[in-house]
Nucleic acid binder design. Structure first.
Lengths: 94, 94
DNA sequence: AAGCTATTTAGATGTTTTTCTAAATACAAT
DNA sequence: ATTGTATTTAGAAAAACATCTAAATAGCTT
């Protein structure tokens, strides 16, 4: 579990926006790219980083590669932050 | 509210470790530095970034500057992540 | 198999980040 | 007022990052 990688991945605004796009459902690399003023190559670079951080995963279909959110890692980040805040369990009952 | 700044600040391992140290209570810049193999100047640089991100605040006392965690911003980060995960409210009752 | 579309990889480039050393500031204590 | 301790600021250098263009790969579709 490469914790550091996840935070690094989340530190870029473009990548966060990609995650937000994917929140609504899977998108192809091209679809994602169409939301930015950036070459496909650059989008591909960001996708690779998100993938390495386990924040997204891909599924190939026909000629396309569809990307979707992987929320399980987000859970871990939340836990880390909870512990920092709460000093303890992370299950903060509120 | 500089959201991006907060994520940037959290993206460095040294800075995250500083936050973890501060979880146990306030520490002076020197105390913090003693946990790392790094010059005081570099620690000071990281503290500045954490401060700008509103993740810590300082209070001067005698000849020292004590730093402590500011958890309020962490709340916002948690909310962003919740929304990404949950698709909605962020108040996930669980 | 040839050509088309979608995406990635390679290599180059400018920018940002992290780190250092040296110097500056701030305050305390003698 | 001088010296000493704690910390920051300035400037430089190396490493990491985000971006581009051009070329490569992968998989349709004819």
């Amino acid at each position: 579990m490469a914790f550091a990688e996840t935070f690094k991945a989340l530190s870029d605004p473009v990548r966060r926006q990609i995650l937000e796009l994917l929140k609504k459902g899977p998108l192809s690399a091209g679809d994602i790219g169409s939301h930015f003023e950036m070459t496909g190559a650059t989008i591909s670079y960001h996708l690779k980083i998100l993938k390495q951080a386990d924040l997204i995963f891909e599924s190939r279909e026909k000629n396309f590669i569809y990307y979707q959110l992987n929320t399980s890692v987000l859970e871990e980040i939340m836990l880390w932050i909870s512990q920092l805040k709460g000093g303890e369990s992370g299950a903060e009952s509120k």
